[in-house]
C-alpha cells in the first residue's frame, strides 16, 4: 500500500473532566499512511482540529517505543488495539483496513478517573507501588555474581515480572477492572529474589490492602489481562501473589 491512501472514520471519546459526562464524537480522517503509528494518526487529526480552532484530543504518550507505559487507548474494544504484545504506540495503521470505523475509548475503571478525553489518572498504581513495591535498604552496587547465588529460573521469572510497565491494560481489559496482574508483577519481582524476601510478608499485605482501598475489582481468573498485557506478564504471577498473601496471613 502506498503512502497516505487510507480513509477512516474515528469515533473518539471526548470528555472535558472526570466530573462531566463524555460522549463518542465522530471524526473522519483522510490520507492516512499504513506505515503511521496509531498515535501519529492522532497527531495528524489533532493538527487538523487545531487548525480549525477546535480543542485537540488529549491522550497520554511519552516514549512512543513501547516501554514507558504511558499510552492507554481501548481500540475497538481491546486495550492497546487488535494486536497482542504491543502498546498503542507500537500499533500501526496497516493493522486496519481502508474505510474502517475505529472506536477509541479511555481505560475505564473507578480507580482510573478520566482527566480529559483519553487520558486517565493512574496515580492509584503509584500509591499501590508506594506501599511496598521496593526494597527499603540500599542493596549496594552490582556485586560479583557468585556472592549472592540466585537460581537462573528465579532470576528469569523476577526479570519477566519486572518487565511490567504499569500501563494499566490489565485493569482496562478485566471485566472487574481488577489490578491483580499489575500488583502481582510488582510483588513477584521482589518475592523471587533474596533481597526482596525480607519484606515479602508486609509487602504483599500492604499492596493488596492499598489495591482494595483504591476501588479496583477482584480477580475472577478469566485470564483476559494476560492476553492483553503488552509485556507478556503471566497469570503465574497472580498465583504467586495469591500464595504469598495466604502464607503472609498465616504467619502473622
Amino acid at each position: 500500500m502506498s503512502h497516505g491512501n487510507m480513509n477512516l472514520t474515528l469515533k473518539i471519546w471526548r470528555q472535558n473532566s472526570a466530573k462531566e459526562q463524555g460522549q463518542l464524537v465522530t471524526y473522519p480522517v483522510t490520507g492516512i499512511s499504513p506505515d503511521m503509528s496509531f498515535l501519529e494518526m492522532f497527531d495528524i487529526l489533532n493538527e487538523q482540529l487545531v487548525s480549525k480552532n477546535e480543542s485537540p484530543i488529549v491522550f497520554d504518550h511519552d516514549c512512543r517505543e513501547g516501554i514507558c507505559g504511558m499510552c492507554s487507548m481501548v481500540i475497538n474494544g481491546r486495550a492497546h488495539g487488535p494486536k497482542t504484545g504491543i502498546t498503542t504506540c507500537q500499533l500501526h495503521m496497516r493493522s486496519f483496513k481502508d474505510g474502517d470505523t475505529i472506536v477509541v475509548e479511555p481505560w475505564r475503571a473507578q480507580a482510573f478517573p478520566v482527566i480529559k478525553d483519553l487520558a486517565v489518572d493512574r496515580s492509584s498504581f503509584e500509591r499501590i507501588q508506594a506501599k511496598g513495591g521496593f526494597i527499603s535498604v540500599n542493596t549496594g552496587t552490582a556485586q560479583d555474581a557468585n556472592c549472592l547465588p540466585i537460581p537462573k529460573n528465579d532470576a528469569d521469572a523476577s526479570f519477566n515480572a519486572a518487565a511490567c510497565i504499569g500501563c494499566g491494560a490489565c485493569v482496562a481489559t478485566c471485566k472487574n477492572a481488577s489490578a491483580m496482574l499489575f500488583v502481582a508483577a510488582k510483588v513477584s519481582q521482589f518475592a523471587l529474589l533474596p533481597q526482596g524476601k525480607i519484606e515479602a510478608t508486609a509487602r504483599v499485605k500492604n499492596m493488596v490492602a492499598q489495591m482494595d482501598l483504591e476501588g479496583f475489582g477482584s480477580c475472577t481468573n478469566t485470564g483476559a489481562c494476560e492476553v492483553e498485557c503488552p509485556q507478556g506478564i503471566t497469570l503465574e504471577n497472580i498465583a504467586r501473589m495469591n500464595r504469598e498473601y495466604l502464607v503472609a496471613n498465616c504467619k502473622d
Binding site: 481501548v74 475505564r108 475503571a109 473507578q110 475489582g217 478469566t222 485470564g223 483476559a224
Partner: peptide
C-alpha cells in the same frame, strides 16, 4: 462498582 462507566465497544471474546 469498579467500572461505573461501561465501554461502548468491548471485544471480550478476544481475551477470555
Amino acid at each position: 462498582k469498579a467500572r461505573p462507566q461501561k465501554y461502548a465497544v468491548q471485544n471480550s471474546a478476544a481475551s477470555s
